[in-house]
Write a protein that binds this DNA or RNA. Structure first.
Lengths: 286, 286
DNA sequence: TTGTATGCGTTATCAA
DNA sequence: TTGATAACGCATACAA
Protein backbone atom coordinates (compact mmCIF):
# COMPACT_ATOMS: atom_id res chain seq x y z
CA UNK A 1 0.00 0.00 0.00
CA UNK A 2 2.71 2.45 0.95
CA UNK A 3 3.51 3.12 -2.67
CA UNK A 4 5.54 6.15 -1.68
CA UNK A 5 7.90 4.20 0.48
CA UNK A 6 8.67 1.96 -2.44
CA UNK A 7 12.19 2.49 -3.70
CA UNK A 8 14.14 1.41 -6.69
CA UNK A 9 15.51 -1.43 -4.54
CA UNK A 10 12.08 -2.92 -3.98
CA UNK A 11 11.36 -2.82 -7.68
CA UNK A 12 14.73 -4.37 -8.48
CA UNK A 13 14.22 -7.17 -6.00
CA UNK A 14 10.74 -8.08 -7.15
CA UNK A 15 11.78 -7.96 -10.78
CA UNK A 16 14.85 -10.02 -10.07
CA UNK A 17 17.36 -7.50 -11.39
CA UNK A 18 19.75 -4.92 -10.02
CA UNK A 19 18.84 -1.33 -9.28
CA UNK A 20 21.04 -0.22 -12.13
CA UNK A 21 18.83 -2.02 -14.58
CA UNK A 22 15.71 -0.54 -13.08
CA UNK A 23 17.22 2.91 -13.26
CA UNK A 24 18.11 2.34 -16.88
CA UNK A 25 14.70 0.98 -17.74
CA UNK A 26 13.14 4.10 -16.31
CA UNK A 27 15.32 6.54 -18.23
CA UNK A 28 16.81 4.98 -21.34
CA UNK A 29 14.78 1.89 -22.03
CA UNK A 30 16.66 1.15 -25.24
CA UNK A 31 19.66 0.13 -23.16
CA UNK A 32 17.86 -2.81 -21.61
CA UNK A 33 16.59 -6.05 -23.11
CA UNK A 34 12.88 -5.83 -24.01
CA UNK A 35 11.93 -8.80 -21.85
CA UNK A 36 13.71 -7.41 -18.83
CA UNK A 37 12.16 -4.06 -19.54
CA UNK A 38 8.66 -5.47 -19.51
CA UNK A 39 9.29 -7.44 -16.36
CA UNK A 40 10.50 -4.31 -14.62
CA UNK A 41 7.70 -2.15 -15.87
CA UNK A 42 5.13 -4.63 -14.63
CA UNK A 43 6.41 -4.17 -11.12
CA UNK A 44 6.70 -0.44 -11.59
CA UNK A 45 3.07 -0.22 -12.66
CA UNK A 46 1.96 -2.56 -9.92
CA UNK A 47 3.32 -0.24 -7.26
CA UNK A 48 2.75 2.97 -9.18
CA UNK A 49 6.41 3.69 -8.68
CA UNK A 50 8.03 7.02 -9.47
CA UNK A 51 11.66 7.74 -8.62
CA UNK A 52 12.07 10.09 -5.70
CA UNK A 53 12.72 13.53 -7.15
CA UNK A 54 14.93 14.67 -4.32
CA UNK A 55 17.18 11.65 -4.67
CA UNK A 56 17.34 12.14 -8.39
CA UNK A 57 18.28 15.79 -8.14
CA UNK A 58 20.86 14.99 -5.52
CA UNK A 59 22.44 12.23 -7.57
CA UNK A 60 22.47 14.33 -10.72
CA UNK A 61 23.77 17.35 -8.78
CA UNK A 62 21.45 19.56 -10.74
CA UNK A 63 17.78 20.05 -11.40
CA UNK A 64 15.83 20.71 -14.54
CA UNK A 65 13.74 23.34 -12.85
CA UNK A 66 13.42 27.01 -13.67
CA UNK A 67 12.44 29.32 -10.85
CA UNK A 68 9.95 31.96 -11.95
CA UNK A 69 9.46 34.82 -9.55
CA UNK A 70 6.53 37.17 -9.98
CA UNK A 71 5.30 39.97 -7.77
CA UNK A 72 1.58 39.18 -7.93
CA UNK A 73 0.38 35.83 -9.16
CA UNK A 74 -3.22 36.97 -8.78
CA UNK A 75 -2.61 39.46 -11.53
CA UNK A 76 -3.39 37.69 -14.81
CA UNK A 77 -0.56 39.55 -16.47
CA UNK A 78 2.00 37.85 -14.25
CA UNK A 79 0.08 34.60 -14.23
CA UNK A 80 0.40 34.53 -17.99
CA UNK A 81 4.09 35.26 -17.81
CA UNK A 82 4.41 32.25 -15.58
CA UNK A 83 2.33 30.10 -17.88
CA UNK A 84 4.54 31.02 -20.80
CA UNK A 85 7.60 30.15 -18.81
CA UNK A 86 6.03 26.78 -18.05
CA UNK A 87 5.33 26.17 -21.72
CA UNK A 88 8.73 27.14 -22.98
CA UNK A 89 10.48 25.29 -20.18
CA UNK A 90 8.49 22.20 -21.03
CA UNK A 91 9.67 22.37 -24.63
CA UNK A 92 13.21 21.98 -23.39
CA UNK A 93 12.43 19.26 -20.90
CA UNK A 94 12.44 21.61 -17.97
CA UNK A 95 9.70 22.53 -15.56
CA UNK A 96 8.88 25.82 -13.88
CA UNK A 97 8.38 26.47 -10.23
CA UNK A 98 6.48 29.53 -9.07
CA UNK A 99 7.85 31.97 -6.54
CA UNK A 100 5.21 34.50 -5.62
CA UNK A 101 6.50 37.51 -3.72
CA UNK A 102 3.19 39.32 -3.17
CA UNK A 103 4.97 42.58 -3.81
CA UNK A 104 7.02 42.24 -0.65
CA UNK A 105 10.72 42.93 -0.80
CA UNK A 106 11.24 40.71 2.20
CA UNK A 107 9.56 37.81 0.45
CA UNK A 108 11.67 38.43 -2.61
CA UNK A 109 14.73 37.92 -0.48
CA UNK A 110 13.35 34.73 1.01
CA UNK A 111 12.26 33.35 -2.32
CA UNK A 112 15.63 34.07 -3.82
CA UNK A 113 17.20 32.00 -1.07
CA UNK A 114 14.66 29.25 -1.43
CA UNK A 115 15.24 28.98 -5.15
CA UNK A 116 18.95 28.97 -4.64
CA UNK A 117 18.61 26.26 -1.99
CA UNK A 118 16.59 24.27 -4.50
CA UNK A 119 19.52 24.55 -6.90
CA UNK A 120 17.22 25.57 -9.72
CA UNK A 121 18.77 25.69 -13.17
CA UNK A 122 17.86 29.33 -13.66
CA UNK A 123 15.80 32.16 -12.21
CA UNK A 124 13.52 34.54 -14.03
CA UNK A 125 12.00 37.53 -12.27
CA UNK A 126 8.98 39.56 -13.30
CA UNK A 127 7.89 42.55 -11.30
CA UNK A 128 8.86 43.58 -7.81
CA UNK A 129 12.30 44.99 -7.27
CA UNK A 130 13.16 44.80 -10.95
CA UNK A 131 10.48 47.39 -11.64
CA UNK A 132 11.77 49.91 -9.17
CA UNK A 133 13.54 53.00 -10.44
CA UNK A 134 16.01 52.56 -7.60
CA UNK A 135 16.88 48.99 -6.72
CA UNK A 136 17.29 47.74 -3.19
CA UNK A 137 21.00 47.55 -2.48
CA UNK A 138 20.96 44.33 -0.45
CA UNK A 139 18.86 42.69 -3.09
CA UNK A 140 21.22 43.50 -5.92
CA UNK A 141 24.10 42.18 -3.84
CA UNK A 142 22.32 38.92 -3.27
CA UNK A 143 21.47 38.59 -6.92
CA UNK A 144 25.06 39.18 -7.89
CA UNK A 145 26.23 36.36 -5.66
CA UNK A 146 23.60 34.01 -6.96
CA UNK A 147 24.49 34.82 -10.53
CA UNK A 148 27.86 33.18 -9.99
CA UNK A 149 26.10 29.83 -10.25
CA UNK A 150 22.58 30.39 -11.49
CA UNK A 151 21.65 32.25 -14.66
CA UNK A 152 19.41 35.15 -13.75
CA UNK A 153 16.98 36.81 -16.11
CA UNK A 154 14.83 39.81 -15.32
CA UNK A 155 12.09 41.62 -17.15
CA UNK A 156 13.02 45.01 -15.78
CA UNK A 157 16.26 46.37 -14.42
CA UNK A 158 18.49 46.04 -11.39
CA UNK A 159 21.10 48.66 -10.52
CA UNK A 160 24.59 47.49 -11.28
CA UNK A 161 23.57 43.95 -12.08
CA UNK A 162 24.66 42.71 -15.43
CA UNK A 163 22.21 39.96 -16.28
CA UNK A 164 19.97 39.04 -19.15
CA UNK A 165 17.08 41.43 -19.47
CA UNK A 166 13.83 41.31 -21.32
CA UNK A 167 12.16 44.64 -21.78
CA UNK A 168 8.53 45.46 -22.15
CA UNK A 169 7.86 48.33 -24.46
CA UNK A 170 6.01 50.85 -22.32
CA UNK A 171 6.46 53.63 -24.81
CA UNK A 172 4.69 51.93 -27.67
CA UNK A 173 1.77 50.98 -25.48
CA UNK A 174 1.05 54.44 -24.21
CA UNK A 175 1.40 55.83 -27.73
CA UNK A 176 -1.23 53.46 -29.02
CA UNK A 177 -3.56 54.24 -26.16
CA UNK A 178 -3.34 58.01 -26.29
CA UNK A 179 -3.30 58.02 -30.07
CA UNK A 180 -6.49 56.02 -30.13
CA UNK A 181 -8.31 58.30 -27.74
CA UNK A 182 -7.06 61.38 -29.53
CA UNK A 183 -8.34 60.11 -32.83
CA UNK A 184 -11.73 59.49 -31.27
CA UNK A 185 -11.77 63.17 -30.52
CA UNK A 186 -11.10 63.06 -26.80
CA UNK A 187 -9.42 66.22 -25.52
CA UNK A 188 -9.65 65.61 -21.81
CA UNK A 189 -7.71 62.45 -21.09
CA UNK A 190 -6.78 61.25 -17.62
CA UNK A 191 -3.96 58.97 -16.56
CA UNK A 192 -4.94 56.83 -13.61
CA UNK A 193 -3.07 54.43 -11.38
CA UNK A 194 0.48 53.18 -11.10
CA UNK A 195 3.50 53.89 -8.97
CA UNK A 196 5.82 56.65 -10.04
CA UNK A 197 8.77 54.93 -8.35
CA UNK A 198 8.51 52.07 -10.76
CA UNK A 199 10.04 52.22 -14.17
CA UNK A 200 7.02 51.14 -16.20
CA UNK A 201 4.80 53.82 -14.68
CA UNK A 202 7.53 56.41 -14.87
CA UNK A 203 8.17 55.81 -18.54
CA UNK A 204 4.53 55.71 -19.46
CA UNK A 205 3.84 58.94 -17.67
CA UNK A 206 6.74 60.75 -19.26
CA UNK A 207 5.55 59.66 -22.66
CA UNK A 208 1.98 60.52 -21.73
CA UNK A 209 2.97 64.09 -20.98
CA UNK A 210 4.74 64.35 -24.28
CA UNK A 211 1.69 63.02 -26.08
CA UNK A 212 -0.61 65.43 -24.30
CA UNK A 213 1.21 68.32 -25.85
CA UNK A 214 1.75 66.50 -29.13
CA UNK A 215 -1.97 65.93 -29.61
CA UNK A 216 -2.72 69.24 -27.99
CA UNK A 217 -4.89 67.68 -25.31
CA UNK A 218 -6.03 69.49 -22.23
CA UNK A 219 -3.00 69.91 -20.02
CA UNK A 220 -4.19 69.63 -16.44
CA UNK A 221 -1.96 68.12 -13.79
CA UNK A 222 -5.01 67.02 -11.87
CA UNK A 223 -5.91 64.65 -14.66
CA UNK A 224 -2.82 62.71 -13.73
CA UNK A 225 -3.72 60.59 -10.77
CA UNK A 226 -0.95 58.27 -9.71
CA UNK A 227 -1.91 56.61 -6.51
CA UNK A 228 1.12 54.39 -5.94
CA UNK A 229 -1.06 51.41 -6.53
CA UNK A 230 -2.37 49.03 -9.13
CA UNK A 231 -5.53 47.73 -7.55
CA UNK A 232 -9.23 48.17 -7.91
CA UNK A 233 -9.40 50.51 -4.97
CA UNK A 234 -6.73 52.78 -6.46
CA UNK A 235 -8.76 53.24 -9.59
CA UNK A 236 -11.87 53.84 -7.57
CA UNK A 237 -10.33 56.47 -5.34
CA UNK A 238 -8.64 58.32 -8.15
CA UNK A 239 -11.90 58.53 -10.04
CA UNK A 240 -13.76 59.67 -6.95
CA UNK A 241 -11.20 62.41 -6.53
CA UNK A 242 -11.60 63.55 -10.11
CA UNK A 243 -15.36 63.59 -9.77
CA UNK A 244 -15.15 65.58 -6.54
CA UNK A 245 -13.00 68.19 -8.27
CA UNK A 246 -15.54 68.09 -11.05
CA UNK A 247 -12.83 67.22 -13.53
CA UNK A 248 -14.51 64.45 -15.40
CA UNK A 249 -12.40 63.31 -18.32
CA UNK A 250 -13.92 61.97 -21.51
CA UNK A 251 -11.15 59.46 -21.94
CA UNK A 252 -9.13 57.54 -19.37
CA UNK A 253 -5.92 55.61 -19.53
CA UNK A 254 -5.83 53.11 -16.70
CA UNK A 255 -2.54 51.52 -15.73
CA UNK A 256 -4.15 48.08 -15.78
CA UNK A 257 -7.43 46.20 -15.75
CA UNK A 258 -7.81 46.28 -11.98
CA UNK A 259 -7.56 50.02 -11.86
CA UNK A 260 -9.92 50.25 -14.81
CA UNK A 261 -12.48 48.17 -12.96
CA UNK A 262 -12.24 50.47 -9.96
CA UNK A 263 -12.71 53.48 -12.18
CA UNK A 264 -15.83 51.93 -13.66
CA UNK A 265 -17.23 51.24 -10.22
CA UNK A 266 -16.84 54.85 -9.33
CA UNK A 267 -18.39 56.05 -12.58
CA UNK A 268 -21.35 53.75 -12.25
CA UNK A 269 -21.94 54.88 -8.70
CA UNK A 270 -22.22 58.44 -9.94
CA UNK A 271 -24.61 57.53 -12.70
CA UNK A 272 -22.07 57.79 -15.46
CA UNK A 273 -21.90 55.02 -18.00
CA UNK A 274 -19.22 53.43 -20.08
CA UNK A 275 -18.55 54.12 -22.85
CA UNK A 276 -21.35 56.64 -23.33
CA UNK A 277 -19.98 59.19 -20.93
CA UNK A 278 -16.39 58.07 -20.58
CA UNK A 279 -14.02 55.93 -22.63
CA UNK A 280 -11.58 53.78 -20.74
CA UNK A 281 -8.46 52.17 -22.05
CA UNK A 282 -6.62 49.83 -19.78
CA UNK A 283 -2.94 49.42 -20.29
CA UNK A 284 -3.34 45.67 -20.22
CA UNK A 285 -5.23 45.97 -23.48
CA UNK A 286 -2.36 47.40 -25.42
CA UNK B 1 32.47 32.45 -6.30
CA UNK B 2 30.75 29.13 -6.61
CA UNK B 3 28.47 29.66 -3.66
CA UNK B 4 26.15 26.93 -4.90
CA UNK B 5 28.79 24.28 -5.02
CA UNK B 6 29.62 25.00 -1.41
CA UNK B 7 28.56 22.16 0.84
CA UNK B 8 28.32 21.64 4.51
CA UNK B 9 31.76 20.00 4.32
CA UNK B 10 33.35 23.19 3.08
CA UNK B 11 31.76 25.18 5.85
CA UNK B 12 32.79 22.62 8.44
CA UNK B 13 36.36 22.59 7.25
CA UNK B 14 36.78 26.35 7.17
CA UNK B 15 35.14 26.70 10.57
CA UNK B 16 37.28 23.91 11.98
CA UNK B 17 34.39 21.74 13.12
CA UNK B 18 32.54 18.65 11.92
CA UNK B 19 29.61 18.69 9.56
CA UNK B 20 27.40 17.52 12.38
CA UNK B 21 28.08 20.70 14.26
CA UNK B 22 27.40 22.82 11.21
CA UNK B 23 24.13 21.03 10.62
CA UNK B 24 23.15 21.59 14.22
CA UNK B 25 24.13 25.25 14.12
CA UNK B 26 21.87 25.69 11.11
CA UNK B 27 18.84 24.05 12.64
CA UNK B 28 18.95 24.04 16.40
CA UNK B 29 21.51 26.63 17.38
CA UNK B 30 20.82 26.20 21.07
CA UNK B 31 22.55 22.83 20.93
CA UNK B 32 25.90 24.34 20.06
CA UNK B 33 28.25 26.54 22.04
CA UNK B 34 27.74 30.24 21.24
CA UNK B 35 31.36 30.77 20.21
CA UNK B 36 31.31 27.81 17.86
CA UNK B 37 28.01 28.99 16.53
CA UNK B 38 29.35 32.40 15.66
CA UNK B 39 32.43 30.94 14.06
CA UNK B 40 30.28 28.75 11.88
CA UNK B 41 27.84 31.45 10.96
CA UNK B 42 30.65 33.72 9.89
CA UNK B 43 31.66 31.20 7.28
CA UNK B 44 28.07 30.54 6.34
CA UNK B 45 27.48 34.21 5.71
CA UNK B 46 30.76 34.58 3.90
CA UNK B 47 29.73 32.03 1.32
CA UNK B 48 26.03 32.77 1.43
CA UNK B 49 25.51 29.11 2.20
CA UNK B 50 22.11 27.41 2.22
CA UNK B 51 21.74 23.66 2.73
CA UNK B 52 20.80 21.81 -0.43
CA UNK B 53 17.05 21.26 -0.32
CA UNK B 54 17.14 17.98 -2.19
CA UNK B 55 19.66 16.49 0.19
CA UNK B 56 17.68 17.72 3.15
CA UNK B 57 14.42 16.24 1.89
CA UNK B 58 16.15 13.00 1.09
CA UNK B 59 17.74 12.72 4.51
CA UNK B 60 14.55 13.67 6.29
CA UNK B 61 12.56 11.28 4.06
CA UNK B 62 9.81 13.83 3.87
CA UNK B 63 9.21 17.38 2.74
CA UNK B 64 7.35 20.26 4.28
CA UNK B 65 5.73 21.13 1.00
CA UNK B 66 2.05 21.20 0.11
CA UNK B 67 1.17 20.64 -3.51
CA UNK B 68 -1.62 22.94 -4.68
CA UNK B 69 -3.20 22.01 -7.97
CA UNK B 70 -5.44 24.50 -9.76
CA UNK B 71 -7.01 24.34 -13.18
CA UNK B 72 -6.25 27.89 -14.28
CA UNK B 73 -3.69 29.98 -12.45
CA UNK B 74 -4.46 32.92 -14.74
CA UNK B 75 -7.90 33.06 -13.18
CA UNK B 76 -7.60 35.31 -10.13
CA UNK B 77 -10.07 33.10 -8.32
CA UNK B 78 -7.69 30.17 -8.41
CA UNK B 79 -4.67 32.38 -7.96
CA UNK B 80 -6.18 33.57 -4.72
CA UNK B 81 -6.88 30.05 -3.61
CA UNK B 82 -3.23 29.33 -4.13
CA UNK B 83 -2.18 32.45 -2.27
CA UNK B 84 -4.29 31.44 0.69
CA UNK B 85 -2.76 28.00 0.68
CA UNK B 86 0.64 29.63 0.70
CA UNK B 87 -0.30 31.80 3.65
CA UNK B 88 -1.82 29.04 5.73
CA UNK B 89 0.99 26.65 4.89
CA UNK B 90 3.49 29.26 5.97
CA UNK B 91 1.80 29.55 9.34
CA UNK B 92 2.56 25.91 9.95
CA UNK B 93 6.11 26.04 8.67
CA UNK B 94 5.20 24.55 5.33
CA UNK B 95 5.45 25.96 1.85
CA UNK B 96 3.17 25.57 -1.14
CA UNK B 97 4.13 24.50 -4.61
CA UNK B 98 1.90 25.33 -7.54
CA UNK B 99 0.69 22.71 -10.01
CA UNK B 100 -1.15 24.39 -12.86
CA UNK B 101 -3.14 22.02 -15.05
CA UNK B 102 -4.46 24.53 -17.59
CA UNK B 103 -7.75 22.68 -17.59
CA UNK B 104 -6.18 19.63 -19.19
CA UNK B 105 -6.97 16.22 -17.78
CA UNK B 106 -3.73 14.91 -19.16
CA UNK B 107 -1.77 17.56 -17.31
CA UNK B 108 -3.69 16.74 -14.16
CA UNK B 109 -2.42 13.20 -14.41
CA UNK B 110 1.12 14.36 -14.99
CA UNK B 111 1.04 16.86 -12.18
CA UNK B 112 -0.33 14.28 -9.82
CA UNK B 113 2.64 12.09 -10.59
CA UNK B 114 5.07 14.94 -10.30
CA UNK B 115 3.74 15.92 -6.90
CA UNK B 116 3.86 12.34 -5.77
CA UNK B 117 7.44 12.03 -7.03
CA UNK B 118 8.26 15.14 -5.04
CA UNK B 119 6.92 13.37 -1.99
CA UNK B 120 4.91 16.41 -0.99
CA UNK B 121 3.32 16.32 2.44
CA UNK B 122 -0.18 16.79 1.05
CA UNK B 123 -2.07 17.68 -2.10
CA UNK B 124 -4.94 20.13 -2.49
CA UNK B 125 -6.87 20.37 -5.73
CA UNK B 126 -9.07 23.21 -6.93
CA UNK B 127 -10.90 22.96 -10.21
CA UNK B 128 -10.44 20.55 -13.05
CA UNK B 129 -11.56 16.99 -12.61
CA UNK B 130 -12.95 17.67 -9.16
CA UNK B 131 -15.51 20.00 -10.72
CA UNK B 132 -16.85 17.45 -13.19
CA UNK B 133 -20.22 15.87 -12.59
CA UNK B 134 -18.71 12.59 -13.72
CA UNK B 135 -15.12 12.02 -12.69
CA UNK B 136 -12.53 10.46 -14.94
CA UNK B 137 -12.16 6.85 -13.88
CA UNK B 138 -8.40 6.59 -14.31
CA UNK B 139 -7.95 9.75 -12.39
CA UNK B 140 -9.93 8.60 -9.40
CA UNK B 141 -7.95 5.37 -9.40
CA UNK B 142 -4.69 7.26 -9.34
CA UNK B 143 -5.90 9.51 -6.58
CA UNK B 144 -6.93 6.54 -4.51
CA UNK B 145 -3.47 5.02 -4.76
CA UNK B 146 -1.81 8.27 -3.88
CA UNK B 147 -4.05 8.75 -0.90
CA UNK B 148 -2.44 5.72 0.70
CA UNK B 149 0.58 7.89 1.45
CA UNK B 150 -0.37 11.49 0.81
CA UNK B 151 -3.34 13.31 2.32
CA UNK B 152 -5.53 14.56 -0.49
CA UNK B 153 -7.95 17.45 -0.22
CA UNK B 154 -10.28 18.66 -2.93
CA UNK B 155 -12.62 21.59 -3.28
CA UNK B 156 -15.18 19.66 -5.33
CA UNK B 157 -15.93 16.00 -5.61
CA UNK B 158 -14.43 12.83 -7.03
CA UNK B 159 -16.53 9.73 -7.69
CA UNK B 160 -15.88 7.03 -5.15
CA UNK B 161 -12.98 8.81 -3.55
CA UNK B 162 -13.27 9.34 0.14
CA UNK B 163 -11.08 12.28 0.88
CA UNK B 164 -11.36 15.59 2.65
CA UNK B 165 -13.57 17.99 0.78
CA UNK B 166 -14.14 21.68 0.99
CA UNK B 167 -17.31 22.87 -0.63
CA UNK B 168 -18.10 26.18 -2.16
CA UNK B 169 -21.67 27.25 -1.70
CA UNK B 170 -23.01 27.72 -5.19
CA UNK B 171 -26.60 27.84 -4.05
CA UNK B 172 -26.21 30.82 -1.78
CA UNK B 173 -24.35 32.77 -4.42
CA UNK B 174 -26.95 32.38 -7.13
CA UNK B 175 -29.69 33.23 -4.65
CA UNK B 176 -28.02 36.48 -3.77
CA UNK B 177 -27.47 37.35 -7.40
CA UNK B 178 -30.95 36.63 -8.69
CA UNK B 179 -32.55 38.08 -5.58
CA UNK B 180 -30.66 41.30 -6.08
CA UNK B 181 -31.68 41.66 -9.71
CA UNK B 182 -35.26 40.75 -8.94
CA UNK B 183 -35.45 43.40 -6.26
CA UNK B 184 -34.14 45.96 -8.72
CA UNK B 185 -37.15 45.14 -10.81
CA UNK B 186 -35.50 43.08 -13.52
CA UNK B 187 -37.89 40.57 -15.10
CA UNK B 188 -35.77 39.42 -17.99
CA UNK B 189 -32.66 37.86 -16.53
CA UNK B 190 -30.12 35.84 -18.50
CA UNK B 191 -27.70 33.23 -17.28
CA UNK B 192 -24.47 33.29 -19.25
CA UNK B 193 -21.41 31.08 -19.35
CA UNK B 194 -20.27 27.94 -17.62
CA UNK B 195 -20.11 24.25 -18.37
CA UNK B 196 -23.12 22.16 -17.57
CA UNK B 197 -20.97 19.09 -17.07
CA UNK B 198 -19.36 20.72 -14.10
CA UNK B 199 -20.94 20.63 -10.70
CA UNK B 200 -20.73 24.34 -9.89
CA UNK B 201 -22.48 25.33 -13.11
CA UNK B 202 -25.00 22.53 -12.83
CA UNK B 203 -25.98 23.47 -9.33
CA UNK B 204 -26.19 27.16 -10.07
CA UNK B 205 -28.34 26.58 -13.09
CA UNK B 206 -30.74 24.29 -11.27
CA UNK B 207 -31.15 26.87 -8.55
CA UNK B 208 -31.43 29.62 -11.17
CA UNK B 209 -34.40 27.89 -12.76
CA UNK B 210 -36.06 27.51 -9.42
CA UNK B 211 -35.52 31.19 -8.70
CA UNK B 212 -36.89 32.25 -12.06
CA UNK B 213 -40.22 30.75 -11.18
CA UNK B 214 -39.95 31.81 -7.55
CA UNK B 215 -39.54 35.46 -8.48
CA UNK B 216 -41.85 35.00 -11.43
CA UNK B 217 -39.26 36.16 -13.94
CA UNK B 218 -39.55 35.71 -17.67
CA UNK B 219 -39.09 32.02 -18.35
CA UNK B 220 -37.30 31.75 -21.67
CA UNK B 221 -34.87 28.91 -22.32
CA UNK B 222 -32.95 31.11 -24.72
CA UNK B 223 -31.98 33.38 -21.89
CA UNK B 224 -29.91 30.53 -20.57
CA UNK B 225 -26.72 30.49 -22.56
CA UNK B 226 -24.25 27.92 -21.35
CA UNK B 227 -21.36 27.80 -23.70
CA UNK B 228 -19.21 25.17 -22.04
CA UNK B 229 -16.70 27.83 -21.30
CA UNK B 230 -15.60 30.41 -18.79
CA UNK B 231 -13.67 32.84 -20.90
CA UNK B 232 -14.11 36.28 -22.33
CA UNK B 233 -14.99 34.91 -25.74
CA UNK B 234 -17.74 32.74 -24.29
CA UNK B 235 -19.43 35.72 -22.76
CA UNK B 236 -19.03 37.67 -25.94
CA UNK B 237 -20.53 35.01 -28.16
CA UNK B 238 -23.44 34.30 -25.87
CA UNK B 239 -24.31 37.95 -25.78
CA UNK B 240 -24.00 38.25 -29.54
CA UNK B 241 -26.37 35.35 -29.88
CA UNK B 242 -28.90 36.94 -27.57
CA UNK B 243 -28.69 40.20 -29.44
CA UNK B 244 -29.15 38.45 -32.77
CA UNK B 245 -32.31 36.78 -31.47
CA UNK B 246 -33.31 40.20 -30.23
CA UNK B 247 -33.63 38.83 -26.72
CA UNK B 248 -31.86 41.51 -24.82
CA UNK B 249 -32.13 40.91 -21.11
CA UNK B 250 -32.21 43.74 -18.61
CA UNK B 251 -30.21 41.76 -16.10
CA UNK B 252 -27.44 39.24 -16.60
CA UNK B 253 -25.84 36.68 -14.35
CA UNK B 254 -22.39 35.86 -15.64
CA UNK B 255 -20.65 32.77 -14.43
CA UNK B 256 -17.49 34.76 -13.72
CA UNK B 257 -15.68 38.01 -14.38
CA UNK B 258 -14.16 36.89 -17.67
CA UNK B 259 -17.51 36.02 -19.13
CA UNK B 260 -18.89 39.29 -17.79
CA UNK B 261 -16.15 41.21 -19.56
CA UNK B 262 -16.99 39.45 -22.82
CA UNK B 263 -20.62 40.31 -22.37
CA UNK B 264 -19.75 43.93 -21.87
CA UNK B 265 -17.63 43.97 -25.00
CA UNK B 266 -20.55 42.71 -26.99
CA UNK B 267 -22.94 45.21 -25.45
CA UNK B 268 -20.63 48.12 -26.05
CA UNK B 269 -20.15 47.09 -29.65
CA UNK B 270 -23.88 47.29 -30.15
CA UNK B 271 -24.17 50.67 -28.55
CA UNK B 272 -25.64 49.42 -25.33
CA UNK B 273 -24.20 50.67 -22.09
CA UNK B 274 -23.70 49.30 -18.65
CA UNK B 275 -25.51 49.64 -16.36
CA UNK B 276 -27.92 52.01 -18.09
CA UNK B 277 -29.26 49.45 -20.49
CA UNK B 278 -28.22 46.23 -18.86
CA UNK B 279 -27.20 45.20 -15.34
CA UNK B 280 -24.53 42.57 -15.03
CA UNK B 281 -23.71 40.51 -12.00
CA UNK B 282 -20.71 38.28 -12.17
CA UNK B 283 -20.67 35.23 -10.03
CA UNK B 284 -17.22 36.13 -8.80
CA UNK B 285 -18.79 39.12 -7.09
CA UNK B 286 -20.96 37.07 -4.84
C1' DT C 1 23.07 -6.65 -21.54
C1' DT C 2 23.54 -6.46 -16.58
C1' DG C 3 25.66 -5.76 -11.98
C1' DT C 4 28.96 -3.61 -8.30
C1' DA C 5 30.43 0.13 -5.99
C1' DT C 6 30.68 4.98 -5.20
C1' DG C 7 29.08 9.63 -4.72
C1' DC C 8 25.47 13.30 -4.22
C1' DG C 9 24.72 16.70 0.53
C1' DT C 10 21.97 16.34 4.38
C1' DT C 11 20.06 14.61 8.90
C1' DA C 12 20.14 11.41 12.67
C1' DT C 13 22.07 7.86 15.74
C1' DC C 14 25.16 6.81 18.89
C1' DA C 15 29.62 7.43 21.01
C1' DA C 16 33.16 10.07 22.94
C1' DT D 1 29.30 19.98 23.49
C1' DT D 2 31.11 17.62 19.58
C1' DG D 3 32.25 14.04 16.08
C1' DA D 4 32.36 9.60 13.22
C1' DT D 5 29.26 7.09 10.54
C1' DA D 6 25.22 5.23 8.81
C1' DA D 7 21.13 6.07 6.32
C1' DC D 8 18.16 8.60 2.57
C1' DG D 9 17.09 6.92 -2.87
C1' DC D 10 18.95 7.48 -6.95
C1' DA D 11 22.52 7.83 -11.16
C1' DT D 12 26.62 6.44 -13.13
C1' DA D 13 31.54 5.01 -14.06
C1' DC D 14 33.47 0.93 -14.32
C1' DA D 15 33.42 -4.19 -14.47
C1' DA D 16 31.83 -8.44 -15.80
Amino acid sequence: MKSQRITIYDIAEEAGVSITTVSRALSRKEKVKPETYERIMDVVRKYNFRPNEAAKILAETKSKIIGVMVSHIDNPFYANMFIWCERIADLYGYSAVLANSMGSLEYEHQLLERLSAQRVAAIIQFGGNVDECVSDKKYTEKVKKIMADIPFVISGRLDGVDCCRVQINDITGINLAVGHLAELGHRKVAFIGGNIKQVPTFQKLREFKRLVSFYNLENDEELICISNGFSNIDGYECMEKLIRSNKIPSGIIAINDFVAAGVIQSLVKHGLSVPDDVSILSFDDT
